[in-house]
Simulated assay, not measured.
Amino acid sequence: MSIKDGDTIKIDYKGTLDDGTVFDSSENHEEPLEFTVGAGQVIQGFDDAVRDMKEGEEKEFRLEPSEAYGEYNEGLSQPVPKDNIQSDIDVEVGMMLLVKTPDGQELPAKIVEVGDEEVILDMNHPLAGKALNFNIQVKEISS
């Protein structure tokens, strides 16, 4: 049985950057990744790569930024007054915060610079602008 849209599958995977750094792996989660193909639960390029695979099959593939988390967008880095950040937090470069948009949605943001009056927040996905390499094995397919 080949994987098609609507199938729920379980896969073991390892994701690496071009320099060999592992950014995620099913080993880290102690169980295979489970998702419904074509339901938008994973990045589009990953969804596309698993279609037509069979149970037990292994595959290596590379996703360009456009197929994964998109290109890095300089416009998603912006200054925010320090007063707007919870007063009980010691802000540091590299720290991740949840930022509320005007419509109430919460987005992760990374502090990339700390000044006396403001901090620069980067709201790009941490993997934006990076090509992603995957090694996967299909463990289970259910319709």
Rank of each mutant, 00 (worst) to 15 (best):
N124E: 10
I43C: 06
A109F: 02
S2W: 00
E60T: 13
E106I: 10
M96S: 09
N28V: 00
G20M: 08
I85N: 06
S142Q: 15
D19S: 05
G56I: 15
D7K: 01
D18A: 12
G129N: 10
K10M: 05
T101K: 10
S2P: 08
D116I: 01
A39L: 11
K4P: 00
Q137L: 02
A49P: 04
S143G: 15
Q86M: 14
G104I: 05
K100L: 06
K110E: 14
K4F: 03
S143L: 07
E34P: 00
V37Y: 09
E30C: 06
V119Y: 06
E58Y: 04
E57L: 01
G129Y: 08
V80C: 04
A39E: 13
I136W: 04
E57D: 12
K130W: 06
L97M: 12
E67K: 14
V119I: 15
A128T: 04
I43D: 04
T36D: 08
F61K: 08
D116H: 03
V138D: 04
E58S: 15
V93A: 11
G104R: 03
A49I: 07
A39K: 15
L121A: 02
K130Q: 14
L121E: 03
S26V: 02
D48L: 14
L127M: 11
E74I: 09
D5S: 08
K110G: 02
K4W: 00
V99N: 00
K10Y: 00
E31K: 15
I85H: 09
V37I: 10
M96G: 01
E113V: 08
S142W: 00
P81W: 01
K100C: 00
V37E: 09
K110Y: 00
E55I: 09
G56R: 13
K139A: 14
I11Q: 02
Q78S: 12
P32N: 12
G45Q: 05
E60L: 00
S87M: 09
D48P: 01
E74P: 15
D103Q: 14
V99A: 06
K4C: 05
S143E: 15
T16Y: 03
K139I: 15
L107A: 01
D5H: 07
E106W: 06
I9M: 06
T101C: 02
E64G: 05
E67I: 03
V91W: 03
T16D: 03
D52L: 15
F134P: 03
Y13L: 05
E67A: 14
P81A: 11
V37D: 09
L17W: 13
D52Y: 15
G129D: 10
V42L: 13
V22G: 04
E92T: 08
L107H: 05
I9H: 02
D5A: 05
M1H: 10
G115W: 02
K100R: 06
L33N: 03
I89F: 08
Q137E: 14
S143W: 00
V93P: 04
L107C: 01
S66H: 13
K110M: 13
G45S: 04
N133L: 06
K54F: 11
V138K: 06
E55F: 00
V50G: 11
E67Y: 05
G20Y: 10
S143D: 15
K130Y: 07
D12T: 12
D90S: 11
S87I: 01
E30D: 13
G15H: 01
M96H: 08
K110P: 01
D103E: 14
K82L: 12
V91M: 11
